[in-house]
């Protein structure tokens, strides 16, 4: 299998959500809801706990308007991702650069997928740190276009 950095394998267009939420908690809950619909996620509660526990350790707002909430769970056997495009930037995310967050990439992987998981986090952050990719996603007319941008560029 190719590395999980090949985003088309872990992301589908249905998992790209346009978020109405204005606060971090609401946004994360909406994304948890979306991600728990994926067949890879067997336990919604575990996912929710894991995501919020990780946020307690340190915010996953990595700067430049991007957040990458992520978790490894025993019940997951394959990495899976969903994307939240915020209509209004979230001010209370607590990012490293203190800037509001507009794009959220929520990732869940299996406990034993250590290497794959880290490579995935690394490749997503590298990709969306390119301003043209970021802008293209944020200005995409629909989720299909956003999906295409995410999966075709440097995957």
């Amino acid at each position: 299998m190719t590395p999980a950095s090949n985003l088309s394998q872990i992301l589908s267009s249905e998992r790209i959500v346009v978020l109405e939420a204005r606060h971090k908690r609401q946004a994360l809950e909406a994304l948890i809801e979306s991600l728990s619909g994926a067949e890879e996620v067997k336990d919604r509660e575990e996912l929710s706990k894991g995501i919020f526990y990780r946020e307690e350790l340190m915010s996953t707002g990595i700067g430049m308007g991007i957040a990458v909430p992520h978790v490894r769970l025993a019940s997951i056997d394959r990495p899976v991702m969903c994307v939240g495009i915020c209509r209004s930037p979230i001010l209370d995310y607590g990012s490293l650069d203190n800037k509001p967050v507009s794009l959220i990439f929520m990732i869940a992987a299996g406990k034993n997928q250590h290497a794959e998981y880290l490579r995935l986090l690394s490749s997503i952050s590298a990709k969306v740190k390119q301003s043209e990719v970021r802008d293209a996603i944020l200005t995409a007319p629909d989720v299909e276009t956003a999906y295409r941008i995410l999966t075709e560029n440097g995957s």
Partner: peptide, 18 residues
Amino acid sequence: QNILLDQDSWAWLVASDV
């Protein structure tokens, strides 16, 4: 090893992640 080259991620990943 998987994140040694990606120094940007060192700031936002925590020990629990790796």
